[in-house]
């Protein structure tokens, strides 16, 4: 099968469009999902106070 220009344009205007839109939507939903705020803020704070500077050993 040869990939023609028309085929590529059709593919990018159908699959490409929804793939990028869908992806953006998923990323925004993930970033703003209320349950995710706690781990996000914890992670942002955590790097500031690793006072002992030691790996965890369990």
């Amino acid at each position: 099968m040869t990939i023609t220009h028309d085929l590529l344009v059709w593919f990018s205007k159908s699959f490409g469009l929804f793939y990028l839109m869908g992806l953006s939507l998923i990323v925004v939903i993930y970033a703003y999902w209320p349950a995710n705020q706690k781990p996000f803020n914890a992670a942002a704070q955590a790097i500031l106070h690793d006072d002992d500077d030691k790996p965890y050993r369990g």
Partner: peptide
């Protein structure tokens, strides 16, 4: 100080 917006760092990553 923590990152101003952790959410934005994720969105801009993608």
């Amino acid at each position: 100080r923590p990152i101003y917006s952790y959410r934005m760092s994720i969105i801009s990553f993608w």
